[in-house]
Amino acid sequence: MARLMQTIFQSFEFVFMVHLMQTVLGFTTDLNYALQKRDQDIVNAVELIFLTKLQLQQLREDPGWDDFLQEVESFCVKHNIKVPDMDSFYRPVGRDRRFFIKIKNMHRFHVDMFLSIIDRQLQELNERFDEVNTDLLICMAAFSPIDNFASWDKDKLIKLAQFYPSDFSSSEMSHLPSALRLFLTDMRRDERFRKVKSLAELSIMLVKTNMHNRHDVVYKLLKLVLVLPVATASVERIFSAMNYVKNKLRNKMGDQYLNDCLVTFIEREFFLKVKECDIINRFQAMKERKVKVTLRSHEDEATEI
């Protein structure tokens, strides 16, 4: 078995798959990190989605295939790995040929592996970021305060409000165009908003300056923009955390206990800042629990509370 695994690891097919996965995942790494941030930069996320799809599409085309195949073959030559003839028939490594149809190596590596994996990745991106979702993100990006609201687009923000018909009344929708113009004028003339770089900082500054009451309709739209990425990312984060909290050894915990464990696990960055003495004092102060604490003075005399 060990010799068989060594043969597989030193085969052209294994090297081909490792390079392909490294290339494809390398294109999606930045997008993955951007979407998992707690404070998401919508403008950056929209651009990364477009660039990721563009890079994968360019890799799928003929120049991308030729460059990739040359890179794999150079690696194999450098490490003394046999490179198969692409015009000969495919022979699987460590597997019976009866389970594979009779095809050429070029078809096996180019179509069945290279194009298939790229198409699956593109399909996954298109399903998660379809026309509606991408359009929603583009409209959200028009709210960006970077460079003194350089990406501001009133029409896109009105279209964004139309995605939430239950949150805006007919009077608010009719008032929104003029409210957006007033908001933009107010933001660009106020020096305090020139250093704002994100939507989260914009909302904080609006509350600090009490301008959220002056621009209440626009502020409501801003809150919806902030809630959407946080809500979607939080759901994904919770489901991922459940695999760590509720495992095979702890699969019978109740809903309340599971919820408490998930909160402390997901927000562990904040809970690690809590002092142990504060936790002990909080636990002892709970009226529904009876705690027997033994205190010892410097004379080593025990006192019970």
Results as ranks from 00 to 15, higher is better:
Arg214Ser: 08
Val225Trp: 04
Phe100Tyr: 14
Gln123Met: 04
Val15Gln: 10
Ser169Lys: 15
Tyr257Ile: 13
Ile103Met: 15
Ser198Gln: 07
Ile204Glu: 04
Gln40Val: 14
Ala231Gly: 02
Phe149Tyr: 14
Tyr90Phe: 12
Leu137Pro: 06
Leu137Met: 13
Gln121Trp: 00
Asp153Asn: 14
Thr52Asn: 01
Ser240Ala: 05
Gln10Arg: 02
Val43Gln: 05
Phe16Ser: 04
Ser88His: 11
Lys246Pro: 06
Cys261Trp: 09
Phe50Gly: 12
Arg296Ile: 13
His175Arg: 15
Leu35Lys: 08
Glu201Met: 10
Pro92Asp: 03
Gln6Arg: 07
Val225Tyr: 05
Glu201Trp: 04
Pro84Tyr: 06
Leu258Arg: 10
Phe89Ala: 10
Ile118Trp: 01
His110Trp: 03
Phe129Lys: 11
Phe100Asp: 08
Asn133Pro: 02
Ile238Asn: 00
Leu262Phe: 11
Lys154Tyr: 05
Tyr164Lys: 11
Glu288Ile: 11
Lys53Met: 11
Leu51Lys: 14
Leu224Met: 04
Met205Asp: 06
Gly254Trp: 10
Arg108Gly: 03
Thr303Gln: 13
Thr264Gln: 10
Pro229Arg: 09
Ser170Val: 15
Phe75Lys: 06
Gln6Val: 01
Gln57Val: 07
Ala241Phe: 12
Thr29Gly: 00
Lys273Phe: 07
Asp147Cys: 15
Pro145Ser: 04
Leu136Lys: 13
Leu222Cys: 05
Glu301Ser: 08
Ser297His: 14
Asn243Met: 12
Glu47Cys: 06
Gln256Cys: 08
Leu176Met: 13
Leu54Ile: 04
Met205Thr: 08
Phe129Ala: 05
Arg194Phe: 12
Ile305Arg: 05
Thr209Ile: 03
Thr209Pro: 03
Ser297Lys: 15
Ala2Asn: 03
Met5Glu: 07
Gln36Glu: 14
Tyr257Thr: 15
Ser178Gln: 09
Trp65Asp: 04
Trp65Phe: 14
Val291His: 00
Glu236Ile: 02
Glu71Ile: 07
Val217His: 10
Asp278Lys: 05
Val83Ala: 02
Ile279Cys: 10
Asp216Leu: 06
Ala161Gln: 14
Asp278Glu: 09
Asp153Lys: 09
Pro145Gln: 09
Ala141Thr: 07
Met21Asp: 05
Lys292Tyr: 02
Arg192Ser: 13
Gln123Trp: 05
Leu122Asn: 03
Cys76Ser: 11
Met286Cys: 15
Ser151Glu: 05
Lys273Thr: 10
Gly26Gln: 01
Tyr219Met: 07
Met140Leu: 10
Val196Met: 08
Asp260Glu: 14
Phe168Arg: 15
Val227Met: 12
Val263Leu: 09
Lys156Phe: 10
Val72Asn: 09
Ser144Ala: 13
Val24Lys: 00
Phe129Pro: 07
Lys273Trp: 04
Leu20Ile: 05
Tyr257Asp: 14
Lys223Pro: 02
Met17Pro: 00
Glu131Ile: 11
Pro177Gln: 13
Glu299Pro: 03
Ile103Trp: 11
Tyr257Cys: 14
Tyr219Val: 02
Arg38Trp: 07
Val24Trp: 00
Val207Asp: 06
